[in-house]
Simulated scan of single mutants.
Amino acid sequence: MSTDWYLQDVRYFSGYENSEISEAFGSFDEFLAQSPETYKVFINDKLVEKTIIIQSESDYNKRRILFKKDDVLWGDLITHDNEKWLVTERPFFNKIHSKSKMALCTNVLSFEVDGEREIVGWTDFNQPIYSDEPNIVTIEFPCVVEDASDLKSNNEEEVNLPNGDMALIISYTDSEQITEDREFSMFNQTYRISGIDKSKTKDSLGVLKLVVKRVQSN
């Protein structure tokens, strides 16, 4: 069975569309079961496995993926071969299977914040007594890193950014850590979030592109 068949747009013009689509669903299940490009992956660190097709692209850090409808969502993090991959394109369902693209997360955006202190006892009035020791919690966002040369504006013109600046692509989040002017460390340098592009998000799905600037040391 030809792999290329699954990459074509599906068009039906007769009165037997439902029958044809039903048969095509079965064919895709067969393809998933037999293809050498089939992999078992985990989505967003959940313990339930999903079966998807992963195909190479000219860019080694990017892959095309085929999967059953709603098995993978826009902005999901896929664990494949012990690496994190970010679903960067909104999935398209062609009435047989969904397809999208994913990119390798080459770094992790992390912040250390104060977490809840440990409860070490209770008062006579049943109120908690908290430890005096601070509880530092690390919040992590696996990210795709793009340097300034990869950035383009909405009209496909190159964006001029100072040397050392870059963009980070992360899963959609409403975390209070992802705000403009927030500083963080990466590559042994300090960076500041200077812009947040939400154009590739919808209904709390998708990806955020963070434009980050290197903070010059005094």
Rank of each mutant, 00 (worst) to 15 (best):
I43N: 09
D59F: 03
P36M: 11
I53K: 11
D70R: 03
I52T: 03
S35L: 07
V72M: 03
K40F: 08
E57R: 15
Q55Y: 01
K62A: 10
K40P: 01
L47W: 07
T79R: 01
N82K: 02
V41W: 06
L47C: 03
Y60P: 10
K62E: 12
S56V: 07
D45P: 03
S56C: 04
G75M: 05
R63P: 02
I52S: 02
Y39C: 04
Y60W: 10
K46I: 10
E37C: 08
W85Y: 14
F42S: 07
Y60D: 05
I65Y: 09
G75L: 06
Q55H: 10
D70S: 02
I43T: 10
I43S: 09
V48H: 04
D76S: 13
V41P: 05
K50G: 01
W85G: 11
V48G: 01
K84V: 15
S58F: 02
S35P: 00
L32I: 04
K50I: 05
I43F: 13
L32N: 04
L47P: 00
Q34R: 13
K50P: 00
V41F: 06
E83H: 01
E83T: 14
W74A: 08
L32A: 03
L86W: 02
Y60F: 13
F42Q: 10
P36H: 08
D59V: 12
N61C: 03
S56A: 14
G75S: 09
Y39P: 00
Q55G: 11
K68F: 03
N61R: 14
E83Y: 01
S56H: 10
L66I: 02
S56Y: 02
V48C: 04
S35T: 03
D76V: 09
E49A: 14
F67S: 00
D76Y: 13
E37N: 15
N61S: 09
V41S: 04
